Amino acid sequence: MISLETFNAGHYEDGYGYKYFVPNYINQDWTWNNSTINHLLEKAALKLGELNSFSKLVPNIDLFIQLHVTKEAVVSSRIEGTQTRMDEALLPEAEIKFERRDDWKEVQNYIKAINEAIKSLETLPISSRLIRNTHKLLLDSVRGEHKLPGEFRTSQNWIGGKSLADAKFIPPTHQLIGELMGDLEKFLNNNQIHLPSLLKIAIAHYQFETIHPFLDGNGRIGRLLITLFLVKEKVLDMPLLYLSTFFENPKDLYYDNLSSIRTKNDMTQWIKYFLVGIEQTATKAVETLSSILRFKSDAEDLIRFSYRSRSTNAIRLLHRLMKNPYITIDDAAAICDITYNSANTLVKMMTKDNLLLEVTGQSRNRLYVCKSYLSLFD
């Protein structure tokens, strides 16, 4: 049994001219005596319960999930240095400037990786297999494609600095990854450990980031692991909660809290920070869902009142816009199964009512966005 108050994170061992950190195993029961953790745990759990309840009230909740996923992909990738914006991520590749396409592709890979990982939870536990499969999708045909997509690293990596000589942190040698990831996998799936799910994933996230099992993409996979675990454990009914925005603001605080575990054995402070992040992120997700509901209701009321015979097609188009707020007239024609001229008339009506905005300024091949909806995710 491990006590949070007396937790020992691990030790250093000698490499070739450097020292790497070896974390202690975590697959044990944990205890704590800190009343603040209990208080924060209760607040976080209440907000997650509110988010779950609210999501059940939202009709066609799947309409909104994809935008949440896209936002997470953008923010989580931005933490790692990509420059793609939320609006860019939703555009087709042909609309992206050539010099920004690598960043765009990384975000698209992350969206695909999230969706596939969530789907995989139906048949797989949170496991090294699932994690490697997700990593393979993440690094497919992008700048990390030569960094062993889908495979644990077979060489030493480091965090910060230009080399091992000036690195801020050096994870364990690759020869220990198998056993360390095995311990982490057992911990995540050990039903004999009497530990609240939020505390378990807080500890597991730290451990994953410390092991740093891949040559690239560890941060994104580690952050995604939080949502996957909460969905698998049915703490979340829907994948609507992602902590990347909280971790990003400010990013240094996130890294400092992780580092303090290794340097000061301070797991308690990390868990407090993590639980605050859960509560604040769940609160924001509820606010976003509430705003989405108001937008959807107001837009549908406007359409039913003003569009008459075109109202059915306009609402069909509106629902498509809530999956991806960008659209062309050809898209509208296909979605509504109507002629180009009819789609053009419908798009013009929705533009007049500020449900769509033309963004190219061109006379042909125009692209429209439902900006009032997209802005709800900022």
Rank of each mutant, 00 (worst) to 15 (best):
M1P: 06
H11R: 14
Y16I: 14
F21S: 10
V22Y: 05
V22N: 03
P23G: 06
N27S: 13
S35E: 11
E42M: 14
K43R: 15
G49Q: 11
L51D: 06
N52C: 10
L67F: 05
H68D: 04
E72L: 07
E72A: 11
V75D: 07
M86K: 07
E88I: 07
E88M: 13
E88S: 13
I96T: 11
K97L: 12
R100P: 00
E106D: 10
E106N: 12
V107K: 00
Q108Y: 00
N109Y: 11
Y110R: 08
K112M: 11
I114G: 00
L124D: 08
I131P: 01
K136C: 12
L138C: 05
L138M: 14
S141Q: 15
R143T: 08
E145V: 11
H146N: 14
H146M: 12
L148W: 01
P149W: 02
T154K: 15
I159D: 03
G160C: 09
F169T: 01
T173I: 05
Q175Y: 12
G178D: 15
M181W: 09
M181A: 07
G182Y: 05
G182F: 07
L188M: 14
N189S: 11
N190T: 06
N190V: 08
L195D: 05
L199H: 12
F208E: 03
T210E: 06
P213K: 10
L215S: 07
R223A: 03
F229H: 12
Y242S: 04
Y254I: 02
N257C: 03
N257G: 01
L258T: 02
K272L: 13
T281F: 01
I292G: 04
K296P: 00
E300S: 09
E300I: 15
R304L: 15
L321G: 04
K323R: 15
K323A: 10
I338E: 02
Y340D: 10
N341L: 13
M350Y: 04
Y368I: 10
Y373T: 13
S375E: 15
D378M: 11
